[in-house]
Simulated assay, not measured.
Amino acid sequence: MTYKALITGVGLLAASLFACAQQRLPLYPNGVPNAKEAENLERHEPNAVVDSLAFDISEPSLGLYLAPEDHATGTAVIICPGGGYHTLLTKREGSDVARAFNKRGVTAIVLHYRLPNDRIMIDRSIGPLQDLQQAIKTVRERAPEWHIDPHRIGVMGFSAGGHLAATAGTHHADTYIDNPAGTSLRPDFMLLVNPVISFMDAVGHTGSRTNLLGNQPSDRQLFNFSNELHVDSLTPPTFLVHSGADEVVSVENSLYFYRGLRQHHIAAAMHIYAKGEHGFLTAPSFDEWFGRCIYWMDQLGLK
């Protein structure tokens, strides 16, 4: 075999393996709702700290990572990367986590949701939530095809992605997409990693709030998107993990949400680490916090 043939064969094998690991699907095959006519300016940039960043997403999509058939559990997790509603950490809080779930027999779907922008949206405040609701609807309706149990579909969110996931979990009765079949938009469980929960001044993350709602949000908007105020008996079981030393998103966000879950007798777990910056860049290790997440899923029979 020539060197050129060997390199070509290796390249084809790598491409084949990647194709098996991920499929990229348009979220709205028939047109994006709540959209203005605008040029697609999506771009991806390398980043020394978090590996990869995506900006200006106007055409949302799903990255599908199917669990290996020989040990698939039937559970699926839709992952919402963080980035303050300004960017998406598509690798560290996306594809890397998806592959870790696959090793555990869990199908993972990375949601590349639209980033709020008046240039591309009629109503910027609901764009990301529309995309997550559409993702839940899509996964539930295609569950038989993807060998997923339609009653074991969860959402996972990091930072602002945690706010998005929590919004879907606390506002699942409010439908912002076309849903003629009445498919349930309620996640079956939530995994929230150093999440933004509140938009109230005392604990809220100002950057995420401004990017989603603009510079002068109304009192109604602040109330509506402060998810600790909307926990009820139908809120899904929730796993929370945060660092008490987080200087970007206060740990109070997780504490307030957990308190609401407790008050409504929702199955929940929370882990607070004494050390570790926002995003857990140095501590705790991925295996440490992700292992606790998997343990909680095991306890609830989700894995």
Results as ranks from 00 to 15, higher is better:
A5I: 11
V10W: 15
A19H: 14
C20F: 15
A21G: 14
R24G: 12
R24L: 15
P33W: 10
N34G: 04
A38M: 08
R43S: 09
H44C: 12
N47C: 10
N47M: 02
V49Y: 07
V50Q: 09
F55T: 05
G94K: 08
N102H: 05
T107R: 03
T107G: 04
P116D: 06
I122L: 12
L129M: 02
Q133H: 05
T138C: 05
V139P: 07
P144E: 07
W146H: 02
M156F: 00
M156L: 11
L164W: 03
A166E: 01
H171I: 01
H171Q: 11
D174N: 11
L185R: 02
R186Q: 06
P187A: 07
D188R: 02
V193Q: 09
V196A: 02
M200H: 14
D201N: 08
G207F: 04
G207I: 10
N215M: 13
N215Y: 11
Q216M: 10
Q216V: 13
D219G: 08
N227Y: 11
S243F: 00
G244A: 11
A245R: 07
A245C: 08
V248F: 01
V249M: 03
S250I: 10
F257M: 03
Y258Q: 15
L261Q: 04
R262T: 13
Q263Y: 14
H265C: 05
I266C: 08
M270V: 13
M270I: 14
A274V: 01
E277M: 04
H278L: 02
G279M: 01
T282S: 15
P284Y: 03
F286M: 01
F286P: 06
W289R: 13
C293I: 03
I294S: 09
Q299M: 09
L300M: 12
G301V: 04
